[in-house]
Each structure stands twice: as structure tokens, then as C-alpha cells.
């Protein structure tokens, strides 16, 4: 859809714009992490910001995730609104205590007497042969543990609005952006993520899914890059007269279960597309959300198109074999028809 005042941004630029606007609006907002100041972030999320805000507020850290994420928790409890970057979500292994035992539990363990208004932004996803310590999504791992809101935008409009909402939230928000959607060129570019993004500040509510495409025959639920696979699959299916509805979750915590259920109630068929490992994950949660509520409106058993339960391999052919894509979604729909 073309708009008269169209201003297309990449997700990286829209994240940087949200950070800049919030930092202008509220001096308690600051950003810290690795390679954010001079480099502007490995994924461009803070590009140009150190020039405007200085290196106190766009703060490079030592390679010490336990210390600086723990420090963000302490700063947030002391009234600041830190945004910290965990460069690759895969690195959570070195600092998870600060995340799930401190960031996620201090509000609860204080009985609500402290707030932890911080954002943990972190890159997810593969597809570019970086192997299994730099390509994971682990959405389910974060969404499973209570006390953290979790968002994952699929386009620049949502990326900006969710970042603004996350910064203004008094609870910790894990902001998981997919490397393949950043529009960085060198990581590949998903054109569908580069959309009209208003210049003024705005929020996208955390916990509200979006209908990325309306349809009547099958519901395809996904998040992040999976939404673009789903949209492409929907185009292919439309050629055969099948109208797929694509639900972009946008938030994993809270999960918009109503939107999922309403869509499936209408279509009677469900496919979940998830780049995280298949078992015990987002796909299973979405399916459970539907079937534990109502099964009589299902015309076929739900399907998941997710990453197989193996570490992510390096070799291109092996990795591409494992990743979800539009063809696999179309194939899943055909299996639903024969089920």
C-alpha cells in the first residue's frame, strides 16, 4: 500500500529513530552494550546516536554481559530507563542469571515495590551461515520464563512502535530483532520489512498481534522473518484459490491469544511458522492456545513449520534445508488438505 507521505525505513533505522526520540524526550533513557558508540551497533541500531547524545548515554561496554546487563537492572531499579544490547541472543549463555533471575524476578520478589524499566534488545536468526552459536532464535526460552515481556517485530513500523512502547514500559522487555530483517545489506535484505514509518513518535501496544493478511481458508501464525515467509506462501496459495490469513504475533509475552483463536475459529486450519527449535516452543504454545480452548472448529490437525531439533549447521545447503520457508508452508497446507 502506497501512502502519500510515504517514508520507508529499514528496521535498523527505525530502531535508531525510536531510541533517539525517547532519549530526547527522557534524559533517563540511555543505551549500553558492545560496539554501540563509534561503530553505531553491529546491526546499526545506534548509528549516529553517539554524535548527538555522547558516549555517556550511548555507552560502549567491556565484553562483560553479566556485568552490564546486571548493571542495567540496578540502574533501572534506581530510576533510569536503560536499553542494553546483547549482540547475539546466542550469548545469553554467559549472562542468563542477570536476565532471568534478576531482570525478570526483581519486580515480583519486591512485591511490586520496585520497577525494572529496561529493554534488552538482541539479535536473532540465521540463514547466512554463521552456524549454531550465532544464528539461533530461542524465542521460546525467553517467552517461557515469567517476568519478561518479549516482542519480535517483522517490519520497520512495528519495530519503531514496539521499541518506543518497550522503553516506556515499567517492566523489562526483551526486544528480539531478526538479523535478516535489519536491512543492513550485508546480512541480506527482506524488502517486506522496509515499510512506511511515521517520523513522529508513536507506540505499538505490547501484547497485540496484527493481521498481516486477511484470509478465510487457513491461519498462518508467525513472528519476525517467518511473517514474510508466510506472506509469500499466502501468495502462492492464492494462485490456487486458497486465501490464507497471516497473523503476525509481534509480542510473545503477553501473547495475544484472542486474535489467534478468532482467526482459527474463522478458517478452521492452523499452521505455525517459527524459526526457533520445533519442540517445546512458540509453535507448540500457539497450537495449545487453540486446541485447549476449542477443537470442534478445527478441520484438520494443526501443523508446525519450525526449525528441526538440531544445532544450526554451517554449510549453506544444510542450514537452508533446516530453515522454514514459503515452500515448506505451502507443503504443510497441502498435508492439511490430505489429513
Amino acid at each position: 500500500m502506497t501512502q502519500s507521505n510515504e517514508r520507508k525505513l529499514t528496521i535498523a533505522r527505525s530502531m535508531a529513530e525510536a531510541l533517539a526520540q525517547e532519549m530526547r524526550r527522557d534524559e533517563k533513557v540511555f543505551v549500553m552494550g558492545e560496539d554501540l558508540a563509534a561503530l553505531g551497533g553491529v546491526y546499526g541500531n545506534t548509528r549516529g546516536l553517539a554524535d548527538e547524545f555522547g558516549t555517556d548515554r550511548i555507552r560502549d561496554t567491556p565484553i562483560s554481559e553479566t556485568a552490564f546487563i546486571g548493571a542495567a537492572v540496578g540502574a533501572a531499579m534506581d530510576g533510569m530507563r536503560p536499553v542494553v544490547e546483547l549482540m547475539f541472543v546466542d550469548f545469553f549463555g554467559v549472562c542468563f542469571d542477570a536476565i532471568y533471575n534478576l531482570m525478570a524476578k526483581n519486580i515480583y520478589f519486591s512485591g511490586g515495590s520496585v520497577k525494572v524499566p529496561m529493554v534488552l534488545m538482541t539479535s536473532t536468526g540465521g540463514g547466512y551461515s554463521d552456524a549454531g552459536q550465532h544464528s539461533q532464535c530461542v524465542y521460546g526460552t525467553f517467552a517461557h520464563l515469567p517476568g519478561m515481556k518479549v516482542v519480535a517485530p517483522s517490519n520497520a513500523y512495528d519495530a519503531k512502535g514496539l521499541m518506543t512502547a518497550a522503553i516506556r514500559d515499567d517492566s523489562p522487555v526483551v526486544y528480539m530483532y531478526h538479523k535478516g530483517l535489519q536491512g543492513m545489506g550485508w546480512l541480506g535484505t527482506e524488502e517486506g520489512a522496509i515499510v512506511h514509518t511515521p517520523e513522529e513518535d508513536y507506540t505499538v501496544p505490547i501484547g497485540k498481534a496484527a493481521i498481516a493478511r486477511k484470509g478465510t481458508d487457513v491461519t498462518i501464525v508467525s513472528l519476525g522473518i517467518g511473517v514474510h515467509h508466510a506472506l509469500r506462501a499466502a501468495e502462492t496459495l492464492a494462485e490456487g484459490g486458497v486465501e490464507a490469513e497471516v497473523v503476525d504475533l509481534r509480542s510473545l509475552v503477553p501473547l495475544d491469544r484472542d486474535t489467534i483463536r478468532e482467526s482459527v475459529a474463522k478458517t478452521g486450519r492452523l499452521i505455525v511458522v517459527d524459526e526457533d527449535y520445533s519442540s517445546y516452543g512458540v509453535a507448540a504454545e500457539v497450537i495449545a492456545t487453540v486446541v485447549e480452548n476449542e477443537i470442534t472448529n478445527l478441520k484438520a490437525p494443526p501443523k508446525r513449520v519450525a526449525y528441526p531439533d538440531v544445532p544450526i549447521p554451517f554449510a549453506r545447503v544444510m542450514e537452508q534445508f533446516c530453515l522454514p520457508n514459503a515452500q515448506k508452508i505451502v507443503a504443510a497446507y497441502k498435508e492439511l488438505q490430505t489429513a
Binding site: G70, S113, V114
Partner: peptide, 27 residues
Amino acid sequence: FDPDVNFACSGIIGQGMGPAAGAALSR
């Protein structure tokens, strides 16, 4: 936790370090 006197705990060994440094940074 008693925010009135800026006191917090963690039951995990060593994990009060980061939050204390962060509160110092905040000031």
C-alpha cells in the same frame, strides 16, 4: 527488597555485583 532505603538482594552468589555497579552508574 526495601526501596525506601535502597536495599536489594539476590540469592545467587555474586549476582549483587552488577546491580550495585548499575545503581552507581545511575547516580
